[in-house]
C-alpha cells in the first residue's frame, strides 16, 4: 500500500506544478456553466417548464454536471495507449506495482483535488454569479454513492479505450468515436430525459447515463424513489460487468503485448 501512497504523492506534486493548466481548466468549466445559464434562462423566458424541469433545476443540473465532468471524467486513455505503442509499458510491468492500480491511483489524485476545488468554486458561483438551490444533505449523501459507481464505470471505460492499443497500433479514431458517443450519451450536453423517448430508452440500456446524468439527477433531487432504486441497482450492475470485462480484456491484451521500443 505504501508504494501506491508514494505514487499518489508524486502525482499530487506534478498536478500542483502545472498551475496554469489547472486553473484554466476551472475557468473553462465556469465558462460552460455561464453559457448554459444564459441559454436556459433565455429558453425559459416565457416562464414555461420543460420536461419536468423548472429553470432553477436545469441550472442546478448544468452546474452539477460541470462539477462531475471535472471529477469523474479524468482521461488516462492516451497515456495508456502511448505506454503500449511506444513500449513504455515494458518498464512499468517489471516494477512491483500493478499497472491498472497505478493508473487508477494517479487519476484519483486529480479527482480528490478537483472535488475540493470544485466544491469551493460552486459555493462562490452560487454566492456571486448565479443563484441556484444548493442540494439537500441527503441528496449529497446518495449522490456520493452514485458518483462512486460513475467513477468505476468511467475508469473501466477509459482504461478499455486505452488498452485498445494492444490490438490496434493506431487507435486514435476508434478511441475518439467511443469517447464522443460516451460523452454525449452520458448527459453532459443536456439531461437525457429531455431526449425523444425512443432515444432515451436506447441510452438507458447502456452504462453511459450512470456516468453523469444519474449522479447529477440524484444530487439536484430530480428523482423519485423507484428511479433512485433502479438507478443505483443499474449503476452497481454495470460496475460489476465493466470491471469483469475490463479485467478480461487487460489479461488478454497483456498476452499479445510484444514490448516494441525496448
Amino acid at each position: 500500500m505504501r508504494k501506491y501512497w508514494f505514487i499518489f504523492k508524486m502525482e499530487l506534486t506534478q498536478l500542483m506544478e502545472l498551475r496554469l493548466d489547472f486553473w484554466v481548466k476551472w475557468l473553462t468549466s465556469l465558462l460552460i456553466v455561464i453559457m448554459n445559464y444564459f441559454v436556459w434562462t433565455t429558453a425559459f423566458a416565457s416562464g414555461k417548464s420543460f420536461g419536468g424541469y423548472a429553470l432553477e433545476s436545469i441550472v442546478a443540473y448544468f452546474i452539477t454536471t460541470s462539477f462531475l465532468y471535472n471529477v469523474i471524467l479524468i482521461h488516462r486513455q492516451e497515456l495508456i495507449s502511448r505506454d503500449i505503442v511506444e513500449g513504455g509499458l515494458s518498464t512499468l510491468l517489471v516494477r512491483p506495482l500493478s499497472y491498472p492500480l497505478q493508473i487508477f491511483c494517479r487519476a484519483m489524485v486529480s479527482r480528490i483535488v478537483y472535488t475540493a476545488i470544485g466544491a469551493v468554486l460552486i459555493y462562490i458561483v452560487s454566492l456571486f454569479i448565479i443563484q441556484f438551490p444548493m442540494p439537500a444533505p441527503q441528496n449529497i449523501a446518495l449522490g456520493i454513492l452514485a458518483i462512486l459507481f460513475a467513477t468505476i464505470l468511467y475508469t473501466c471505460f477509459d482504461f478499455s479505450l486505452g488498452i485498445l492499443s494492444f490490438w490496434l497500433a493506431r487507435s486514435n479514431g476508434p478511441r475518439w468515436i467511443f469517447s464522443t458517443i460516451g460523452m454525449l450519451a452520458s448527459g453532459i450536453m443536456f439531461p437525457i430525459d429531455l431526449l425523444p423517448s425512443w432515444l432515451e430508452k436506447i441510452l438507458f440500456a447502456t452504462p453511459f447515463p450512470y456516468i453523469i446524468y444519474f449522479p447529477a439527477s440524484v444530487v439536484v433531487g430530480h428523482f423519485d424513489s423507484t428511479s433512485l432504486t433502479q438507478g443505483m441497482l443499474a449503476g452497481f450492475f454495470w460496475s460489476v460487468v465493466l470491471i469483469i470485462l475490463t479485467a478480461t480484456a487487460w489479461r488478454r491484451g497483456i498476452r499479445t503485448f510484444d514490448g516494441s521500443g525496448i
Binding site: 475518439w176 468515436i177 464522443t180
Partner: peptide, 13 residues
C-alpha cells in the same frame, strides 16, 4: 479507419 471513425464521430456530435 481513423478517417471513418473521426468523420462518423463528428457527424454524431
Amino acid at each position: 479507419l481513423d478517417f471513418w471513425m473521426y468523420l462518423v464521430g463528428k457527424i454524431i456530435r
